[in-house]
Design a protein around this nucleic acid. Structure first.
Lengths: 173, 173
DNA sequence: TTATCTATGTATAAAAC
DNA sequence: TGTTTTATACATAGATA
């Protein structure tokens, strides 16, 4: 074309290639706009230069998302379902983790323990005992702090008399 | 062009419009292919005729999905995120639920309880006590059953002393 | 880059099949 | 519809700024 016909193959001269790209890209977008107007067509066009820079055109009458929905319907090709699948898998994974946490939690609260065998049951018991110890230790710390505060305070100590419930049971252990 | 210049506005004659569409669509796709080859460009092109029929072209070096990923990155526009948003919200919701379960679990095990106030600490304690009661009740049942079985067995008790096998699920420590 | 300048090669409007 | 024909209008390669 122009000052000489060219073969349709990669333009080796980098400068020519870039210049030609720029011209033809403009031409392509222009043509896309024209067919849109002239023929009531819907056109979406995305162009990446070899340097990564992007140019795009989408007809005003339909947005790209709608175009792509239609594309998927008509072509049968999936564009984002693989992405959906990954998210769904993630959801499944977390839900399972969630379920097992819920179960463990119920066990520690003494619920659903009929499904446990003796060994697991004893493990649960020990976990609970350990937790109880720590909770009581902590309560005690709370109270000690409170009492010390009361002593250092001016007024009366009625709040300081409030001791933890701490009913100690002895099971068989 | 051709036998007469035309204005770039909708071609009112339906027949002309369709014929022109067909010609220009072919021209557009041809140009898209050419720039792809000549300039190392990546091009995606989707065209819908007013009758709904679709024509598309995508450069061989990148599939449409990848093109669109790149499009989203570079343009900042969301194509399918509304669809994804729901799934992502679901994931967030479950993750939060998960976190709160984990925290509750740690509390019941006596961990991280320094962050609790006295009232919550006592609530935890009561939950633990309740769980412990139930666990011990259940253990007791186990043993009673076992003892009864031993009594009812004919031979020597050595097989009867064998405690449940305990195929173990872990996590109670 | 982008714009302008030309000579050429292409695309295509209109018509007819 | 799709193709061919043909006259014109456009696009653009290469050079230059």
């Amino acid at each position: 074309m122009g000052r000489g016909k060219i073969e349709i193959k990669r333009i080796e001269n980098a400068n020519n290639r870039v210049v030609t790209f720029s011209k033809r890209r403009n031409g392509l977008v222009k043509k896309a706009k024209e067919i849109t107007v002239l023929c009531d067509a819907k056109v979406a066009l995305i162009i990446f230069a070899s340097n990564g820079k992007m140019t795009d055109y989408c007809c005003p009458s339909m947005d790209l998302g709608a175009m792509l929905d239609q594309y998927q319907k008509l072509s049968g090709k999936k564009l984002w379902d693989t992405k959906h699948e990954n998210l769904n898998n993630e959801i499944d994974r977390i839900k399972k983790e969630n379920d097992s946490l819920q179960l463990e939690l119920r066990h520690l609260k003494g619920e659903d323990i009929q499904s446990l065998n003796l060994k697991n049951l004893m493990a649960v018991e020990h976990a609970i005992e350990h937790g109880l110890d720590k909770a009581r230790d902590h309560q005690m710390e709370f109270l000690m702090t409170k009492r010390r505060n009361v002593r250092e305070n001016v007024g009366g100590g009625e709040s300081a008399t409030q001791f933890p419930a701490a009913t100690t049971r002895d099971g068989y252990s």
